[in-house]
């Protein structure tokens, strides 16, 4: 009994950082209220969703050793599906025989299905290659989906698509920014816990072993490809989930959300926060978003200092910000 309690406590402790992070994030609307600064909520909503996408990316980057530059496009697919379904609902035109919907609870699974299919097909091709080829193929797929989104003339083409209908959660309608923010934080918390569980599972162990020494994994009788593919799809689904929520929150999607620069931003966010921990990218996203907002407030040439910071991080900070907070992790 004692043993059981202790192992349960240890398990709980391993989630401590995640709980703490979610708790702090959940307090933000209250702080914003006290400071009378609603902009803070918008900023943090952005951070939470970009962070969620980066958590997804980091599942294969930090734990699978795969550098994908197409996660912005998967994020974008999630966003576009929600927006397109809402467009069909608003214009009362059926899509492929079905009517559109403004119910997020229906749109979300559809979005995830589309993202999953996209991740699966691209993953099968990309994962057959290795190292640099993988990076460049994912970059190319990102560009492909980017151009595809521009070519969607019905849905705004290069200008993007505004969601004109009122999005609902069945009968519930989100009325305040804080409510939506809390929803995002709750989803993020769930994602982090699920990720943590997966990484500690047998599947997660094999994935990490693949990243370290694929040949040994093969020698042990596992075929790495199915593991990597499943991981890639999971990772894409999380990015797609973040994208779908992004569309809900912004009420607007645009091809810019799919640009390859955004994919690179997600990599920067993951590395900034530290790829070794599940929640690292969330820290990275907060810093990134704050940095972006502060720098762009100071100068129109804010990408210059941002670029220098990115270069500086690569040169100096190997384990990301998480190292500064928690101390270096020993593998």
């Amino acid at each position: 009994m004692d043993k059981f309690v202790r192992s349960w406590l240890a398990e709980l402790k391993s989630y401590a950082a995640i709980f703490a992070l979610v708790a702090v994030l959940a307090c933000v609307p209250i702080v914003a209220q006290l400071l009378d600064n609603p902009f803070l909520i918008r900023l943090l909503t952005r951070a939470v969703l970009l962070g969620m996408a980066a958590v997804g990316l980091n599942f294969i980057l930090g734990f699978g050793g795969l550098l994908s530059l197409m996660h912005a496009s998967l994020f974008g697919i999630g966003a576009y599906v929600v927006a397109i379904l809402a467009w069909h609902d608003f214009n009362m035109e059926p899509v492929l025989g079905f009517s559109g919907t403004s119910n997020v609870l229906i749109a979300l699974p559809v979005a995830l299905l589309c993202v999953g299919l996209a991740a699966m097909t691209t993953g099968v091709i990309a994962l057959r290659t290795m190292g640099a080829y993988f990076i460049m193929i994912t970059l190319a797929f990102n560009q492909m989906l980017y151009y595809f989104s521009i070519s969607l003339q019905t849905y705004g083409g290069g200008d993007g698509l505004q969601i004109l209908s009122t999005l609902t959660f069945n009968h519930f309608v989100i009325t305040s920014r804080a409510q939506f923010y809390w929803l995002c934080v709750a989803v993020l918390g769930t994602v982090l816990i699920v990720m943590h569980k997966i990484i500690k599972s047998r599947f997660g162990m094999i994935l990490q072993a693949c990243a370290q020494n694929e040949r040994r994994v093969k020698a042990l009788g596992f075929a790495p490809l199915p593991y990597k593919l499943v991981a890639f799809v999971i990772s894409g689904l999380i990015a797609g989930l973040a994208g779908a929520l992004w569309a809900v929150g912004q009420g607007f999607v645009s091809p810019a959300d799919l640009s390859w620069m955004r994919s690179a931003d997600l990599v920067v966010i993951a590395v900034l926060g530290g790829t070794g921990r599940v929640y690292g990218p969330v820290l990275g996203a907060i810093v990134f978003v704050v940095l972006e907002s502060v720098l762009s407030g100071l100068t129109p040439y804010w990408q210059l200092p941002l670029g220098l910071i990115v270069i500086g991080i690569v040169v100096f900070l190997k384990g990301g910000l998480a190292d500064l907070f928690v101390g270096r992790r020993h593998a």
């Binding site: 550098l67 990599v267 990408q303 210059l304 941002l306 670029g307 220098l308 270069i311 040169v315």
Partner: peptide, 22 residues
Amino acid sequence: SHLDQVLVTFGLILVVNDVTRL
């Protein structure tokens, strides 16, 4: 690693773009 290379050259793109704008 390729990750470092991607990051550092991405940083370079940002820098060169803005210097060009300047």
